[in-house]
Amino acid sequence: MSTTLEAPASTRGLVEITKVRKSFGTTEVLKGISLTVEPGGVAVIVGPSGSGKSTLLRTINHLEKVDAGFIAIDGQLVGYRVKGNKLHELPERDILKQRTEIGMVFQNFNLFPHLTALENVTEAPVVAPRPEKARLSQAEARERGLELLGRVGLRERAGAYPRQLSGGQQQRVAIARALALDPKILLFDEPTSALDPELVNEVLDVIRELAKSGTTLIIVTHEMGFARDVADTVVFMDQGQIVEQGKPQDIFTNPQEERTRSFFSKVIEPAFNI
């Protein structure tokens, strides 16, 4: 499994989240989050439901606008442009450009059901505006799409519609779709939560391969064993705040905070040696 990244890993995909706040109505779901993910790093965000993990992930590609704070990718602000001492909101087109460098994989796959697996993968490279890169022709996109489907082990299902695929296969197509734009960063929002237990591993295996590829990965998941395997950094969030972060071996075996300890004691079954 070869990677097709152009730039050296060290210069691509630095994510800096600085004092990000976000409220829905009167509920503040992100209360001043700061987090740095190094280029090529793998950050796994864990925590109880409603802790703001998914919202944080969605602010990174500007699907969710932040109320305060800012997010930068390789030093470039997401969604805004600095002019003098003002932040100007970017027009839609520029936001779309930024998003092509940030792939996202959703809990519910969100594949386009009326398009085949291959069409799902080839749609964006043909039409999305990309920084410093031309759009692909249909033929180029097709070739690249088949290659990517091959990479997730689904080349022979290229003509299938999403509903004709199993959940695990659908999520693998969704990963191929996210890879089609050669993103610097990949965001995974609970990629295995909607899957039957026996289908979880086929998806996790694909993500494991990606973790070695030099793409920056930010993963929200409840799969603790997987987190321990794949993460450089594990981030524990609760009630809109980062409670604790660290290397997986430290945070899982020796959490410093009481909240972290009590969460892990609930989600990690001692019978399973993870």
Partner: peptide, 26 residues
């Protein structure tokens, strides 16, 4: 489904194309 629009937006697909290629056919 709202997720369809979200996925299309996350992929950088332009607004008009989102309407005509993703939303309308469905």
């Amino acid at each position: 489904d709202q997720g369809q629009l979200e996925a299309a937006a996350a992929l950088g697909i332009p607004a008009w194309r989102r309407s005509t290629r993703i939303v309308l056919p469905q």
